[in-house]
Design a protein around this nucleic acid. Structure first.
Lengths: 235, 235
DNA sequence: GTCTATACACAGATAGAC
DNA sequence: GTCTATCTGTGTATAGAC
C-alpha cells in the first residue's frame, strides 16, 4: 500500500469532514443552507487548526479567528456557542473520522504479518493527510475538563488497540515472538506519533512518510520476529 | 545502572536548580538574600510546572500562580518582569541543567554497546526525575517567538545527537549494523519522549522506568545488532 | 521584601441593524 | 445570514503603603 494509493481511496479534506458533520448534526445548526454552512464551517476549522498550530488554541483569540477565517465575530457565533464548544466540535468531528477510516482500512482477512504492516501504514498515512488534526488532538485536548479529556484518552487507547490486537493474534498463531504486547503497542504508537509531532524535523530532512513507515516496520519486525536470536538482554 | 543509583548521584530537585540559577544570575535579581530568593523561586517554579501540567501555561493566570505559590501578585513580579520572561527563565534554567547532567553522565570510555545502553537509561531516568520540566519543555515551548523556539529546537537536536554519535561510533567499529543512523536516532528519541508525555498511561499500567528502559534497549539492539538476519523488508 | 489596591487592555460573548 | 458596535469579565502589570 503506497501513500498515493491510500490518499486516493480516503477522502479527508476538511470540507469532506465538515459536510459529514453538518449532515449528522443539522438540527443544532442555525444556518440552514448546507452549502453556506459547510463552506463556512470549513473556513472556521481550517483557520482554527492553522492558528492553533502556530500559537496554540488558548492563545488564539476569536478576533484572530475572525480575521483568518474571513468571518465576522457575529458570524462565528452562529456556528458555535462558545470557544470551548468550538474545540469540542473539532475534537469530535476529527476523531469520529479517524476511527471510521482506520476501522475501514485496517484489514480483516490477509496474512497476519501483512496486517501489521498495513495497520502501521494506515495510521501513518492518515496522520500525514490529517496532520493538522492529529497535532491539534495531541496538543489541545490534554487540558480539557474531564468529559472531553476522556474522549481524548479513549481515542489514544483505541488506536493503540488496533495495533495490540494484531500483535496478540500474531503471537497466538506463532508468527510473532513477543513477551510484552502492551509495551510493544505503546512504543509503536510513540513512533507513529512522532511523525506528526515533529513534522518540522522530518520535512527538513526530506524524509517521506513512506520511508518513515518502512523504517518503523523494519524495526518492529526485527524485534518480534527474530526476538529469540537477539543479543543478551541488559541486566 | 539502576534508577536508584542514578537518582542518588544526580541532584535535580527544583530547589537545587533554582539555587544554581540564582547564583549565576545574581545581578539581575532584585532580591538579595539568597535563601529567600531561592525559596521563593522554587515555589514559583513548582507552582508553574504544576499548573502548566494541569491546564497549560497560557491558561494559567498569574492570579492562579499567586494562589498556588503562596506569593502575592506583587511579590511574583520581583522575580520576573513578565509572564513571558517566567517561561523563558524556566526553559533556560531547565535545559542548562539537562545538558549539563547528560554530558556528565553519558560515558566517555566503556564499550560501545554499554555506552548506548547508558545513554538511553540516562535520558529516561533523568526525564523520570524531571518529569514536570520535560513535559513543560515539550508542551509550552513550541509556540514561542523565534528566539526562544530556537533554543527549544536546538535542545531537541542536541539530545538526539547524544544518541546518534554513539550509533555512528558503533557502526564504524562494526558493532552495530544500521543503514539509517538519523532515523534510528529519531525513533529512539520518540520512544524516550513517550515516557514523560504519557505518564498517566505508564503509571496506570504500573510500568517502572527501568522496565521501560530495558524494553527500549532490547528493541533497539535487536535491530542494530541482528539487522542482517531480519525478515525481508516490506516492498 | 511583600502586600493590597488599582490601572488598563483585551478577551469572550451578545444585541440589534441590515 | 452577516455585520458592527458594545457589554462585561478577567488578564497582565504596576503604584505605593507597610
Amino acid at each position: 500500500m503506497t501513500f498515493k494509493d491510500f490518499s486516493k481511496r480516503v477522502m479527508v479534506t476538511v470540507e469532506d469532514l465538515c459536510r459529514d458533520f453538518y449532515r449528522e448534526n443539522r438540527s443544532q445548526f442555525r444556518i440552514k443552507k448546507e452549502d453556506t454552512a459547510v463552506k463556512n464551517l470549513a473556513a472556521i476549522v481550517n483557520a482554527t487548526l492553522k492558528l492553533s498550530f502556530k500559537k496554540g488554541f488558548d492563545a488564539m483569540s476569536l478576533r484572530d479567528l475572525s480575521g483568518q477565517s474571513g468571518l465576522s465575530m457575529g458570524a462565528l457565533y452562529t456556528y458555535f456557542s462558545s470557544k470551548d464548544e468550538l474545540l469540542g466540535m473539532i475534537q469530535r468531528q476529527g476523531q469520529i473520522a479517524v476511527e471510521r477510516i482506520l476501522t475501514e482500512y485496517i484489514g480483516s482477512g490477509k496474512e497476519i504479518r501483512e496486517k501489521l504492516r498495513d495497520a502501521i501504514r494506515a495510521h501513518l498515512y492518515l496522520s500525514e493527510m490529517m496532520k493538522g488534526w492529529f497535532y491539534f488532538f495531541f496538543m489541545e485536548t490534554k487540558n480539557l475538563n474531564e468529559k472531553y479529556r476522556n474522549i481524548s484518552v479513549k481515542s489514544e487507547l483505541m488506536t493503540e488497540r488496533f495495533i495490540t490486537d494484531i500483535l496478540e493474534e500474531g503471537v497466538k498463531s506463532g508468527t510473532f515472538v513477543l513477551d510484552n504486547v502492551p509495551l510493544m503497542g505503546s512504543i509503536i504508537k510513540a513512533m507513529m506519533q512522532d511523525w506528526y509531532l515533529k513534522q518540522w524535523k522530518y520535512a527538513q530532512r526530506n524524509i517521506s512518510v513512506e520511508e518513515y513507515a518502512k523504517f518503523v516496520i523494519r524495526v518492529v519486525e526485527s524485534y518480534i520476529i527474530n526476538n529469540q536470536q537477539a543479543g543478551s538482554a541488559p541486566q
